[in-house]
């Protein structure tokens, strides 16, 4: 579904990704783990076209998106839940969801919002509340809900557990599991390696701009190197 082939990305003269190859297949949950500064977020941003890859190829559903502008990429069946949630804090929950379906018709938006409220009954309760006044967990739900509004076939989540309480993290990961049942392919980038790998079909370990390891989620969890480096032994 999504394929990155030997992708190099530069920030100015500094190379942040040194030839990364990652594949996410239809219906999978794939986790990407790595330490701070390994290039996880850079990899995601490269998929979104900001910054664009300096060499290599990114293919989404058979279509080369390497040189497309961000706005075109984001309209081609892919949705991202950005790091740190980034809900529109001055807008109500409903308006945030409305913005998510910006390019859809009115009836599609109505159905989409109903669907999101089914997935997250909590958001329904807060329908007319300003997003900025909600708790971190609720905002994360809203961010996922907003991304769902564009009816994506693939969803990228950048550190959905960032700054959340353990109990809330558990909820969020349950929700990500549900996304798979909806038929959405999930590409998950996480620091919380334990949770991320347990949920994932496959995982990649990124280290200083290179893919160090790749395997099924279970195998990576059991891998002593991964345990030492990311799971605290």
């Amino acid at each position: 579904m999504l394929l990155l082939e030997d992708v190099h990305t530069h920030y100015g003269k500094i190379e942040a990704l040194h030839g990364v190859t990652v594949e996410v297949k239809q219906g999978e949950i794939v986790s990407l783990i790595g330490a701070n500064g390994a290039g996880k977020t850079t990899l995601l941003m490269t998929v979104c076209g900001n910054p664009q890859a300096s060499s290599g190829r990114i293919v989404l559903e058979g279509r080369d998106i390497t040189r497309l502008p961000t706005s075109d990429i984001m309209r081609s069946g892919i949705a991202i839940v950005p790091e740190g949630r980034r809900v529109f804090s001055g807008l109500t929950v409903e308006e945030n969801l409305h913005m998510g379906g910006f390019f859809n018709t009115k009836s599609e938006i109505r159905k989409g919002i109903e669907h999101v409220y089914e997935l997250f009954p909590r958001l329904k309760e807060r329908e007319h509340q300003r997003a900025g006044t909600m708790s971190g967990g609720e905002q994360q739900m809203l961010a996922i809900g907003r991304a769902l509004m564009s009816k994506p076939r693939m969803m990228i989540l950048d550190e959905p557990s960032l700054g959340l309480a353990p109990l809330v993290i558990k909820q969020i990961f349950e929700i990500i599991g549900q996304l798979r049942e909806e038929g959405i392919t999930v590409f998950l980038v996480e620091q919380n390696a334990h949770q991320a790998l347990r949920l994932a079909d496959r995982g990649y370990v990124l280290e200083t701009g290179r893919i160090r390891l790749q395997d099924t989620g279970e195998n990576l969890l059991a891998n002593p190197d991964v345990q030492n480096a990311y799971l605290g032994g």
């Binding site: 900001n50 961000t70 075109d72 950005p82 913005m99 991304a147 564009s150």
Partner: peptide, 20 residues
Amino acid sequence: RAWEALREDEIAARSLGLSR
């Protein structure tokens, strides 16, 4: 609404496919 979204959060607005 696109103006307001861009004012509120540029990255989020772009992630929804709005062209900056």
